[in-house]
Amino acid sequence: MTTESAFTVIRPGILATFQDLGRRDGERQGVPSGGAADQLSAAVANILVGNPRDAALLEVLAGGLALRAEAPLLVAVTGATATVKVDGHPVRQGEAVHLDAGSVLDVGRATAGMRCYVAINGELDAPRFMGSAAPEARMGFPQNLSAGQQVKVHSAYQGLANPFGQPLFRLPVPKPDLTPRVWTVHIVEGPEAHAVEGIHELLAGAEYTVGPNSNHVGLRLAGPVRHPEGLGEIVSHGVPVGAFEIPHGDELIVLGRYRTLTAGYPIVAFAATSDLPLLGQAEPGRRLAFRWISREQSVERLRVQEGELRMLEQRSKTALESLGVPIDATMA
């Protein structure tokens, strides 16, 4: 039976919003899918608490969120590396964590990566636009959380059927690897690569730095750029997330989930979809290196990632069920 729980935002940090995996069928109407920049970590957080992957959750930019549970809650924090505490005691990221009513969850400042995700067992009472809780700020749907805000959660969670008060299970969790100093992103050839002499060697050999004015619309990368020759004007056309554009200036732009849907800049490469979560975590100053792969290899990497997610869904479901945690029926 679903009851009404709630939590109160004590402080949102720099920016915390409702979030999910984005809207469906929006792009054909001019609204970008949007959604979590790191889709993998958002899906994993939901899976760890027994929710469907695309359930509404919280996205916390650079950490700094604190919230107080007003009823027992099962939560999980994933994404950017941060110190997570419950009532002052450190808990692990990438695991289900029980909160008693009155407990305070504190997500510290991110030390690697940009965005933490906080999932809570049940359904968040978040506003929806086109069926999604993802922000769409350009259209007046910012979804920002503010200090003092109380958020209802429709959940049947009452606590755990074990004597320890915590789930105490640790599953292999797929996540973008935020530990190296330089992050390696796999890329696939783009339609205008042929017009830029030496672009393969250039992108494979150089390091690029994420610029300060990067956001979920796009990452602006500083590093060596060459411009195409003999292309003429490109008629503006639809562009996917992860496209590597070379605009008129000497920079490289990688499109994010809130991109403008059409553009006419030359595209030299596309990020592998399996590496979009990593790009979604790239903070200003982060250094990136690129490795070319074939489209087939790129699909294969995505297949591996999807397999890991499905495995996690099965294991998480088994573990949570044994603890008497209500599982959403749509979870695998």
Partner: peptide, 9 residues
């Protein structure tokens, strides 16, 4: 999954 329309594509 979705479509993004250009004027000529």
């Amino acid at each position: 999954v979705d479509l993004a329309a250009g004027l000529e594509s």
